[in-house]
C-alpha cells in the first residue's frame, strides 16, 4: 500500500514535470520559428536549453527509483547546466564579432562598455542602417575570407 502510494506520487510528479517541460520546449521551438531576428531567437533557444530540458530531466529522475540511472541523469543535467550558457555565449559572441546587430535596437550601450577593448574585433563600429540590418554582416561572414 505504502509503496504503491509512493509510485503514484512519483507518477504525478513526473506528469507535472513532463507537462511543464514539454510546454517550455514547444514554446521555445515555436519562438525559434516565430521571432524575427537572430538575437531574439537566442532567448527562445535559452528557454529550450535551460527550463525545458532541465525540468524534463528532473521528471525522468522520479521514474528511475534511486539507483545508478538517477546519478547519470543528474550528471546529464549538470553538464547541460554548465555547457549550455557557454555554447549560447559562443554563438552570440561570434555573431557580434562578425558584425550582426539586432534590428530595431531601443537602447545601445556598446560604445561605453567596449570603448577601450582592443580585442573586441568589431568591424562595424557604427550602427547599421535600419533599412537592411543583416545584409552587410552576411557578406562579411560568408565571403569575407572565402
Amino acid at each position: 500500500m505504502d509503496m504503491s502510494l509512493l509510485d503514484l506520487a512519483c507518477n504525478i510528479a513526473t506528469g507535472i514535470a513532463f507537462a511543464t517541460g514539454s510546454f517550455f520546449l514547444l514554446v521555445g521551438a515555436f519562438g525559434i520559428v516565430r521571432l524575427p531576428d537572430f538575437w531574439s531567437r537566442l532567448h527562445a533557444a535559452g528557454v529550450i536549453d535551460t527550463a525545458g530540458a532541465e525540468i524534463i530531466l528532473i521528471g525522468m529522475m522520479f521514474q528511475t527509483g534511486w539507483d545508478i540511472a538517477t546519478l547519470k541523469l543528474i550528471l546529464i543535467a549538470f553538464l547541460l547546466f554548465i555547457t549550455s550558457p557557454t555554447a549560447t555565449h559562443a554563438v552570440s559572441n561570434a555573431a557580434f564579432v562578425a558584425g550582426l546587430r539586432p534590428q530595431d535596437l531601443k537602447k545601445d550601450e556598446t560604445e561605453q562598455t567596449l570603448s577601450d577593448v582592443p580585442t573586441a574585433a568589431i568591424p562595424y563600429r557604427s550602427m547599421l542602417p535600419e533599412s537592411e540590418p543583416a545584409a552587410p554582416s552576411k557578406s562579411s561572414s560568408g565571403e569575407g575570407s572565402a
Partner: peptide, 25 residues
C-alpha cells in the same frame, strides 16, 4: 556571466574592461 546567460531573456555578449555587454529581449 554564465548566470546572466542562463536566465532566459538576457545574454552576455561581450566582456569589456569593467562591465559586461548584455543583450536583453
Amino acid at each position: 556571466a554564465n548566470s546572466i546567460t542562463l536566465t532566459p531573456g538576457t545574454i552576455t555578449v561581450e566582456t569589456g574592461k569593467d562591465a559586461f555587454l548584455v543583450h536583453a529581449l
